[in-house]
Design a protein around this nucleic acid. Sequence first.
RNA 1: GAGCCCGUAGCUUAAUGGAUAGAGCAGCGGCCUCCUAAGCCGUUGAUGCAGGUUCGAUUCCUGCCGGGCUCACCA
Length: 581
Amino acid sequence: MSHLRREVLKFRRTIILMKQRLVNLLLPLVDIDEKRLLSLIEIPPSREQGDLAFPCFQLAKQWRKAPHLIAQELAEQLNPDTLTASGFSKVEATGPYLNFFFERQKLANQLLSISVEEQLADHQIGANQTVVIEYSSPNIAKHFKLYHIRSTMIGQALANTYAALGYHVERINHLGDWGTQFGKLLAAYFRWGEDEKIKADPLTELVHLYVKFHEEAEKNPDLEEEGRHWFKRLEEQDPEATRLWEWFKEESMKEFEKIYQLLGVRFDHYLGESFYSSKMDEIVALLEEKGLLKESEGAQVVPLDEEQLPPCIIKKSDGASIYATRDLAAAIYRYERFKPIKMLYVVDYRQSLHFQQVFAVLKRIDPIYEQICEHIDFGVMKIEGEIGSTRKGKGLLLHEVLNEAVKRAEQIINEKNPQLANKEEVAKAVGIGAIIFNDLKHHRTREVNFVWDEAFNFEGKTGPYVQYTHARILSLLRRAGAVEVSPLEHPLYEQPLCWEILYTLYRYPSVLEETVEKNDPSQIAKYLLDLCQLFNRFYAEERIIVEDQAETQAKLALCQHIARVLKHGLKLLTIEAPDEI
RNA sequence: GAGCCCGUAGCUUAAUGGAUAGAGCAGCGGCCUCCUAAGCCGUUGAUGCAGGUUCGAUUCCUGCCGGGCUCACCA
């Protein structure tokens, strides 16, 4: 093993490895167990203070001594040679904190000489583990609405991030293609449907029929019964009902595919609810065998008194299945087929009670489900403050919003960079990127209020800002003509702003780890914004291409790495990073 | 009524119980004879209310006020 290679390994694993090193240094000096000690290590608010910190408050209590005195004592006790051997240049006591500094030049050199993928290669926490993620899951016979973007993009970004950390990922689109709603649609079709109109504009006409059904049902309650009846016939594989259902599904898929293509979203499996319709009897038999099923008001239910939840309905009084039954079948199917360590459901928070019930039933079938099932709930999307209802046929269409965003991007390009070669392509990347980023930058559980002017804003904390920063760096690299940027140690890297950037780059893998820990892609979005802001400040303060060759190299190596991380991060969010914008 | 979630600046928001509560938008004032001004710098401005736990609370607990969601044959 070469000297350089060993040095690379010394730092590669990012902050997490360095924290462990720090713990090893402190362990002989304090009487705190290793795990606890590790959890106490924190990152100081500014790099001026240090790169890692150990707060001495806990010890103060134990030792009955002022924390700032303890920090001073510990600083003196730490051997400088041992520090150096662990990659630290010095330690300082600042008030009650013991602050550690990395060997910055060396670390910088080593970090910049590896690619993002190499850095992540040491961080494959998911190797040999499978994660199943269910997301997007639109209902057929309805348009793909703007609010569907939440489940779709959160799920896709999570899938990408899990994959980047070495997990094997199964992406499932749990299409809403079964249930009483299709009975209602069939009932409406037989009453008012016209094939010509449906052929002309399938989804619009089907939604029209569905809305009409609900309007009429308010006046004539018998219609509800008619809808349930048609669903029952569909479940019994009535040929006419099945033929129509297949037709409606096919037309829906055509539209969904167009949207997914635009967004860059893909799935490993399209396993809609209908896929499990044949497994209903199995589920009922299984629950019966376990003695979980009870009759209540004519329906078959699993009581969940222990969890203080309402009972979970398995079979309706007319014998038809219900969505909980299909979710049970889906969970069992997924577990048996993929043997995952996690099964995630990216569905908005209004369904949290439903998932609590389903998970509680699964737990009774096999306790393993409690460990692996997780509802990744997210806040619903409001449009200009309002929540749309599909039953009334409201809500913005996603493809209309995307088209508008691309149009806006085109205008801005014509204004700011009219010479750009592939305007159309870039406008698409920027417009759609703006919409996706605007959604993903919000913390998962927050409600997102879609406001046109904010979503189409291309300045500040936006996707285009990140894309712009990326393009700016590539422009620098082109101008310098430096394709091969060779790594070197340089005092520049110790300057506060440069070091802050390097430290941020060094943290990247831990940001991905946090993203999958919290199942929250906004961690990546926020990180990218921070990185951009740092770079843009650097760019404003310093000339990158200068007389001094070594300095130019040092700066370009830094810039190049920033660009790579930006591109990598955007890709995880399913956003393109054009070379020029 | 019960359960769950949320109240941070005019607006949108950040902060594993820790150091000076960090940004963006909007406003005001600066910065392109020089590498993409979709940028940068400066400036005004915030933890709903009352208690409690703690060396330390935006964060944890209790109550109140305000908002959202859900509560058996829809998904």
